[in-house]
Design a protein around this nucleic acid. Structure first.
Lengths: 123, 123
DNA sequence: CCTGATACCTAGAACTACTATGCATCGAGC
DNA sequence: GCTCGATGCATAGTAGTTCTAGGTATCAGG
């Protein structure tokens, strides 16, 4: 029940931006939320998340400030920016494109028996 | 109309295995097929594909032999193995899990206005 | 006082991927 | 018969990133 490093890397940015699009949050909470949402399949570590948050901040996709809730520990809260929302939309488009491509290949595997020559070969 | 390096990397293996699950093929043809299937969005280069094919062969997911069709150039044809089919099934499972997670985050963005406290915080 | 949970951060090793280049054949055009 | 573009495969080495491992600190509970 382990997920490829590549898939984890590819989904990390859109996941974080998606979570922050719901409302501000902080590192530790995001970590727990991702592990919960994926049913424990995406095993994120803080060493993966914090550098990612810093990169997103450096790119202007999110912004952060320190807050200390009463009776709580110091937390760095992140908020998504307009630029971050644009990036999220772009990521969703890319995911849709790739998933469409994969689906077309995979559905062919199940249904097609005789393969026709592709256009670039038939031409 | 460019797709993230990470997404390209994550989709490469399942795409190749999916294509080979339809029938044997060779590097150059796979390259063209992927570019066509994705509508030109996945811009694969041969420098990406050949090392990937070699890795898949080393891992036992595919097997290869040289063939020279009459009136054609020498080509290295790849076939998927049973182990490769198992790997493909595993990859599909992982993609489904990640896409589900992303969808749950993204659908929340569109519909939910009041966020309820997650279980790990409410408990 | 000690442990585990919360909460954040980073250096540097370990790994990987991409660029650039090379080789070779064939058909088409001139 | 020469050259160019397409076909077809391959890899060295750099340039880059990522993950491990460790560090700091507070608080609650035993």
């Amino acid at each position: 029940m382990h997920i490829t490093k590549d898939l984890v890397a590819a989904s990390a940015t859109p996941l974080v931006l998606g979570i922050l699009a719901e409302g501000e949050s902080y590192g530790y909470a995001i970590l727990k939320q991702v592990n919960e949402l994926s049913g424990g399949q995406l095993e994120w570590t803080d060493g993966l998340l914090y550098p990612l948050l810093h990169r997103l901040e450096r790119l202007g996709h999110v912004e952060a400030d320190w807050q200390t809730p009463p009776g709580g520990r110091r937390r760095k809260y992140y908020r998504i920016t307009d630029q971050g929302r644009a990036e999220l939309a772009e990521q969703r488009r890319q995911w849709a494109a790739v998933v469409d491509t994969l689906r077309s290949v995979w559905s062919a595997t199940q249904s097609i028996t005789s393969i026709t020559a592709p256009a670039w070969e038939a031409g």
